[in-house]
Amino acid sequence: NSLAEAKVLANRELDKYGVSDYYKNLINNAKTVEGVKALIDEILA
């Protein structure tokens, strides 16, 4: 998966839960796919 794909999928996942734009910005600023995954795990914990 590319970083861009990971960000799109992460933001879709956040949308399902009604997560605020603050967290979407964190996702969009992530530098690695692993970073995106770690943020998602933390946000949805």
Rank of each mutant, 00 (worst) to 15 (best):
I43G: 03
A4I: 09
L9N: 15
A45P: 05
R12G: 07
V19K: 05
G35Y: 10
L14Q: 01
K37Q: 09
A10D: 01
K16V: 05
G35F: 06
N29Q: 14
I27L: 06
A45C: 07
A30V: 05
K7M: 06
Y23C: 07
Y22K: 10
K31N: 12
A4L: 10
K37D: 04
T32K: 02
A38K: 12
L9E: 12
K31F: 09
E13D: 04
T32I: 01
N25Y: 11
G35H: 15
R12L: 15
R12W: 11
V33D: 02
A30G: 04
V8W: 15
K31V: 14
D15S: 11
A6V: 09
E13H: 09
I27H: 00
V33T: 06
A38N: 06
D15K: 10
A45E: 08
A38Y: 07
E34R: 05
L44W: 05
K16R: 11
I43A: 10
V33Y: 06
Y22E: 09
I43P: 00
A10Q: 01
N28W: 13
D21E: 14
L9S: 12
D15F: 06
N11D: 04
S2F: 09
K7F: 02
A30K: 04
V19G: 13
S20V: 05
D41F: 08
K31Q: 14
A45K: 13
Y22A: 08
Y22H: 12
L14G: 03
K37L: 13
N1R: 07
L3K: 00
E5M: 12
V8G: 08
A6G: 02
N1P: 14
V8N: 13
I43W: 10
K24C: 03
K31W: 10
Y17P: 01
D21H: 10
V19A: 11
N29F: 07
L9H: 10
A6M: 13
V36T: 02
K31I: 11
N11R: 08
E5I: 13
N28K: 09
A6E: 06
L26F: 05
G18P: 06
L14K: 01
A10T: 02
L3W: 01
V36H: 00
N25W: 10
N1A: 14
R12C: 03
E5W: 12
L14F: 04
E13T: 14
V8T: 07
E5S: 04
I40V: 15
N1E: 09
G18C: 05
S2D: 14
K31P: 07
N25V: 07
V19D: 05
N25E: 14
I27K: 00
V19M: 15
N28Q: 12
E5D: 11
I40H: 04
Y17G: 02
L9K: 14
V8Y: 14
L14R: 01
K24R: 14
Y23M: 06
A10N: 00
L3H: 00
V33H: 06
Y17N: 06
L26A: 10
Y22L: 08
D41W: 10
D41A: 15
N1D: 13
L39P: 00
Y22N: 06
V19T: 07
L39M: 07
D21F: 07
V19W: 11
S2G: 11
A10H: 01
I43F: 11
S20N: 10
K31G: 09
G18V: 07
R12E: 14
L39F: 04
Y17H: 14
I40Y: 12
Y22G: 05
E34W: 06
R12I: 15
E13M: 15
E5H: 08
Y23E: 03
Y17I: 14
S20W: 07
A4V: 09
E5T: 09
T32H: 03
V8D: 15
Y17K: 06
Y17F: 09
Y17A: 11
N28Y: 10
A4N: 09
I40A: 07
I43K: 01
N28T: 08
V33A: 05
Y22C: 10
A6Q: 08
Y17M: 13
Y23I: 03
G35M: 15
A6I: 14
V36W: 00
L14D: 00
N29M: 12
A38D: 11
S20C: 05
A4G: 08
A45L: 14
V33S: 04
K16I: 06
T32Q: 02
N25F: 09
L9A: 15
K24S: 04
E34V: 04
N11V: 13
G35S: 11
A4H: 14
A4P: 04
S2T: 13
N29I: 08
A30C: 13
V33R: 04
A45D: 09
A4C: 05
N28E: 12
L14H: 01
N25L: 11
S2I: 12
I27M: 02
A4R: 11
N11G: 07
L9Q: 14
K24Y: 09
K24H: 04
Y23D: 03
N28A: 13
T32M: 01
D21Q: 12
R12V: 12
V36S: 00
D21P: 11
K16A: 09
A10W: 02
S20D: 11
V19N: 06
G18H: 10
A6K: 03
D21K: 04
V8R: 15
A10M: 02
S20K: 06
S2P: 14
V33L: 11
A45N: 12
E34G: 05
K7T: 02
I43Q: 01
N11Q: 14
L39I: 13
Y23R: 02
K37Y: 07
Y23Q: 04
G35D: 15
Y17C: 02
S2H: 09
L14A: 15
S2V: 12
E34L: 06
A4Y: 10
E5R: 05
S20T: 11
N29K: 09
N11K: 12
L3R: 00
L39T: 03
I27A: 01
L3C: 02
A45H: 09
I27P: 00
D15C: 01
D41H: 10
D21N: 10
N25D: 15
V33M: 08
A10V: 02
A30M: 12
N25H: 12
L26D: 03
K37I: 12
Y22F: 11
N29T: 11
L39C: 03
I27Y: 01
R12F: 11
Y17R: 10
L44S: 05
D41R: 13
V33F: 06
V36L: 11
S2Y: 08
V19Y: 15
V36Y: 01
V8P: 00
L9R: 14
K37T: 09
N11I: 15
G35P: 00
K31D: 13
E42C: 11
V19C: 08
A4E: 12
V19L: 13
N28V: 06
K37F: 13
N29H: 10
V8C: 04
A45F: 13
G18A: 04
L26I: 10
D15W: 04
E42T: 12
K16C: 05
L26S: 03
A38T: 10
V19R: 05
N1F: 13
V19E: 04
A38R: 12
K7A: 03
N29D: 14
A6H: 09
N25M: 09
K31M: 15
V36A: 01
E34D: 07
I43H: 02
S20G: 13
E5N: 09
A38S: 10
E5G: 04
E34P: 03
L44A: 04
L26K: 08
L9P: 01
A6N: 04
L44V: 11
D15L: 09
S20I: 05
K37M: 15
N25P: 03
L14S: 05
E13N: 05
N28F: 07
N1G: 06
V36D: 00
A45R: 11
A30D: 01
A4W: 15
E34C: 05
E13R: 06
Y22P: 03
A6R: 03
V36F: 02
A45M: 13
I27E: 00
G35V: 13
G18M: 09
Y23W: 14
E34H: 06
A4Q: 13
L26T: 03
K31A: 14
L44F: 07
E34S: 09
L14P: 00
G18D: 10
Y22S: 04
E42W: 15
T32Y: 02
L26Q: 07
T32V: 02
A45S: 10
K7Q: 08
L44I: 08
T32R: 02
N11E: 11
K37R: 12
I43M: 05
E34Q: 09
E42R: 13
L44H: 08
I40W: 07
D15A: 12
L3S: 00
Y17V: 12
D15V: 09
A6W: 15
K24V: 06
L14V: 05
E42V: 12
E13A: 09
S20Y: 04
E34Y: 05
I27V: 07
K24E: 03
L9I: 14
E42K: 11
K7Y: 03
L39A: 04
K7C: 03
K7S: 01
K16T: 07
G18L: 06
L14M: 08
N1L: 15
D21A: 14
K37P: 00
G18K: 09
T32S: 10
K7D: 01
V33P: 06
I40R: 10
L9G: 05
I43N: 00
Y23T: 03
L9W: 15
G18I: 07
Y17S: 04
L39R: 01
N11C: 06
S2K: 12
E42L: 10
S2N: 10
N28I: 07
I43Y: 10
A10S: 02
Y22M: 09
I27T: 01
K37V: 07
S20E: 07
L14C: 04
S2W: 08
L14N: 02
E42G: 08
L26G: 02
E13L: 15
K31E: 13
A10P: 00
